[in-house]
Amino acid sequence: MPVVTLEGAVVSAAGYPLLAGVDLVVEPETLTVVTGPNGAGKTSLLRLLGGLVGLSGGRAEVCGIDLAAGNRRALRRRVGWLGHEGSFYDDLSVRENLVFAARALERPLSAIDPALERVGLAGRSETSARLLSAGQRRRLGLAWLLVRRAELWLLDEPYASLDDEGRDFLDRLLADVVGAGATVVLSAHDPLRSSTLAPRTLAMAGGRVVGDVPGGRP
């Protein structure tokens, strides 16, 4: 059963269509990259999939939840969101942010240390999130998702601000989480050039999907 099924999905804000009839099916345990220029509708698509904006028209079913029925809150607990602005409380430490997320979702606190180890922030667990570099903030956001164990990962331009080492790390992490059963949809300005991943690549323009290149072997 697909994780995402969109049929003519429309999202509008103040009368302006952000998504103008998107048809999309995303199968479980896959990695999909949504590309396109600024204003193409990439972030709006991710926000729709995360239940963060309402569906204005068409049909949308994500993780088995019909978004037209309006139960977006139920969907949100099953997705993980990483925005490009940072995704946590700046005045809390790295560990306190993760403790908050774990408690909110009733996840075991024992998941925090392995997640910090995995993203390379074990030595900075008591550092205020405000003091992290852009790349470290991205890693904290990923640790937040690891602690959450979300079914559907929605990453808005996760490669921005990452150096080569960071990009390689993210490639490996995404390969692992997809291998572990999660589904990942991420946005990027350009198609990924990765030696580890060979994702399906969607091209968006004007709020529509205008290209769809299936994934394959890296």
Binding site: G50, R76, W81, E85, F88, D90
Partner: peptide, 17 residues
């Protein structure tokens, strides 16, 4: 303001509190 940053708001919203 604590909840105000766009990324924070979206992330916390997906906690479904």
């Amino acid at each position: 303001q604590i909840e105000g940053a766009s990324g924070t708001r979206s992330s916390v919203a997906t906690l479904g509190l």
